[in-house]
Design a protein around this nucleic acid. Sequence first.
DNA 1: GAAGGGGTGTTGCCGTGGCAACGGACAAGC
DNA 2: GCTTGTCCGTTGCCACGGCAACACCCCTTC
Lengths: 228, 228
Amino acid sequence: MSLVPLWDSDIGSSTDNLPEIFSGFSPSEITRVMRCLGVRRRAFSPGEILAREGDISHAVVLLLQGTALVRRGDAEGNRHLIEVITASDVFGEEILWDPARRCQHTATATEQGVALMIDMQKILDPQGPLCELRSRVVENLLRIMGAKNRKLQEHLQVLAHKSLRARLLEFFTQHAAANQSTIFTLRLNRNELAEHLNADRAALSRELSRMKAEGLIDYHRNSFQLLR
Amino acid sequence: MSLVPLWDSDIGSSTDNLPEIFSGFSPSEITRVMRCLGVRRRAFSPGEILAREGDISHAVVLLLQGTALVRRGDAEGNRHLIEVITASDVFGEEILWDPARRCQHTATATEQGVALMIDMQKILDPQGPLCELRSRVVENLLRIMGAKNRKLQEHLQVLAHKSLRARLLEFFTQHAAANQSTIFTLRLNRNELAEHLNADRAALSRELSRMKAEGLIDYHRNSFQLLR
DNA sequence: GAAGGGGTGTTGCCGTGGCAACGGACAAGC
DNA sequence: GCTTGTCCGTTGCCACGGCAACACCCCTTC
């Protein structure tokens, strides 16, 4: 695990996929903000855990590269896959509003990548030692939260269906809409998809087969096509 | 339906349950912000619909008094109860990040009350004609979005359980934690609770009976107690 | 008191889907 | 070649819960 102050690194140079939280900032402004916030950079490998449910942390995770799965478990040991986060996504923002600063989810990397760990305390505290760029960070954070909440709404919309087939169709429709195409490839394997849809893997396979037989969808491995 | 400019009314005087979005504002500042934003006041009666799924609107709804149920339906006509909003809650903030400004939910009043309809366009537009109080409104809005985020996460946590009993126990546990007591009264009737838990009303009644028989809970009508 | 209506409890039927077990496909390593 | 591991498909069993129908309670209205 590499964890170094960010301003020693060269993130400011790759402004192509500038994370949303620095949207509208010049490279020099980014450097200033990161100094103020004490942003740290962390490289990770597949399988590595970026944050664990129950951890106490003051840092929000911002993915620059790579992919991670966000999960939450319950007392009985069931796991539920909340979402897939990729470059420029935010994770763990809920600690900002939790007095105990307790992380509610576990994020596991599936691809090698880099993340920023941002101590958000200073952002929410108006009296904090943050430079005058604070209000612009807050504004970007607001947009991020808006996007995050929409993701949650979409997931809720999936889980609100009673039958597995309906949940699948809802999920596929959302994906097709996001990709602007009825053909898409999932990052999730069957186990993970089942976790996300709150279903059993075997039942998921069975239902996919039925839907293919009925001509609703076509698929091979992780490539899917929505027909009809 | 009464819909008048707000600064003709006397909302500024009742600063007791000041809505979060005006948190930290003095009465005169509130008046100024409301002028800038063109806030409108709307009184409503039980059964009245505050906003309908699919509507195009630029206004976010802010409840001052009363209660409303937030629902979302699907193509097959199934309805799902997302949440209960009460005084100082916000509804419909998702339109802020939807380019089509399309409302995703339906809000139905269950008690007589008053709401503010706030045109939020000017808040997100940094070039807009909004006074210098804008950044403080954005900041409050961020906290509101954080609270909303947690509500969504809690609902997801409920729906992530496979069995109806587990969903019920999760829901009850959340309520008990929020009320700081294992005894609480629900605002929802059986139909609405079933909608919220993604279950059938009859199955819900059956499971509640079983849980009472097994000594897990006790209840009469809408008064519940979590035992064990 | 009678009638009506909304909310709730109950019960029989049966389908969706959870669970467990197994087999096949494919890749990596020896 | 063989082995091991991972992922996916399939199938039998059966329980949870959706659905429909009916009964009961409580309240309002006439």
